[in-house]
Amino acid sequence: MTRLSVNINKIATLRNARGGNVPNLLQVASDIQDFGAHGITIHPRPDERHIRYQDARDLKAFVHTEFNIEGNPVGSFVDLVNEVVPEQVTLVPDSVDVLTSNAGWDTVKHKDFLTEIIAEFKYKGMRTSIFVDPVAAMIEGAAEVGTDRIELYTEAFASGYGEGNKQAVKPYAECAQLAHELGLGINAGHDLSLDNVAFFAQEVPHLAEVSIGHALISESLYLGLENVVNMYIHKLQS
């Protein structure tokens, strides 16, 4: 089955809005795992506007499933990941001024850089994943840099599906098949929700993991966190 990793950035955003420690990020991470999620994802940014670097250190002792740290491999991020040593590190090429991730890597243009970073993380025993658009050349480039997995950037699918265009999933299915043939694992994330995740998982072959944050936390405001986590797991199993 496709595994669910819950991105808890939005919990940190809520906490930071008032200072203090409410909601308690560590307790929420523990609860999400107890509710059945298969992993916890965080995306610390240099300005620490939601997840703080210290959160990554503190969470290490609380994540008993899979800990996935994603972000742009600038020096401070690389140092943090090498210190914490999560089960998975996902490389995302977001610049410091973007609100949220908005593009995948050009794995051809940045081949040498990615090869070096991937080798460093794999040497420390971490599984590596590269955030990419559903473009065959980018998938082929990812295979050449030595990554273990790719994470398909799913905003275009979510937007198209929301407008009634089910064919928006086609490039994802094709790229997932190509990635599998090249020996890569397939993750996916960004704008997946209760409305579209089941269709995506059914249509995209070899899908190992989805990482979902904003939609899942937003849906939990109405439906409850435990309920929503289990709704996702059920949809990913169907």
Rank of each mutant, 00 (worst) to 15 (best):
Ala136Glu: 11
Ala137Ser: 14
Val132His: 03
Thr147Gly: 04
Ile150Thr: 03
Val145Pro: 05
Phe157Arg: 00
Pro134Thr: 00
His110Ile: 13
Ala158Gln: 02
Asp112Asn: 14
Asp148Val: 04
Leu114Ile: 07
Ser129Glu: 06
Met138Trp: 07
Ile150Tyr: 01
Asp148Lys: 05
Ala119Leu: 07
Ala119Asn: 14
Ala156Asp: 12
Asp148Leu: 04
Lys111Leu: 09
Ala137Leu: 12
Ala137Glu: 12
Phe121Val: 09
Thr128Ile: 10
Ile118Pro: 08
Ala119Gly: 10
Gly125Phe: 11
Thr107Gly: 12
Glu140Trp: 07
Met138Val: 06
Tyr153Val: 02
Gly125Met: 08
Leu114Glu: 11
Asp133Phe: 02
Glu144Met: 13
Ala158Ile: 02
Ala119Phe: 12
Asp133Trp: 03
Val132Gly: 01
Thr128Arg: 15
His110Asn: 12
Lys124Asp: 08
Ala119Gln: 09
Glu120Tyr: 11
Phe113Glu: 08
Tyr123Met: 10
Gly141Phe: 00
Glu151Val: 01
Ile139Trp: 00
Ala136Ser: 12
Val132Gln: 01
Met126His: 05
Ala156Ser: 13
Gly141Trp: 00
Thr154His: 01
Lys111Glu: 13
Ile130Val: 12
Val135Ile: 13
Ala137Arg: 15
Pro134Met: 02
Arg127Trp: 10
Pro134Asp: 00
Asp106Arg: 07
Ile130Asp: 03
Ile150Lys: 03
Ile150Asp: 01
Gly146Glu: 08
Ala156Leu: 15
Pro134Ala: 06
Ala143Pro: 15
Ser129Tyr: 08
Leu114Thr: 14
Gly125Asn: 10
Tyr153Ser: 04
Glu155His: 15
Arg149Glu: 06
Glu155Ser: 12
Glu120His: 15
Phe131Met: 04
Leu152Ile: 00
Glu144Ala: 13
Glu120Val: 11
Ser129Pro: 14
Met138Ile: 09
Val135Cys: 00
Ala158Val: 01
Asp148Ser: 05
Ile139Asn: 01
Val132Phe: 03
Val135Thr: 04
Gly146Leu: 13
Leu152Phe: 01
Val135Phe: 01
Pro134Gly: 01
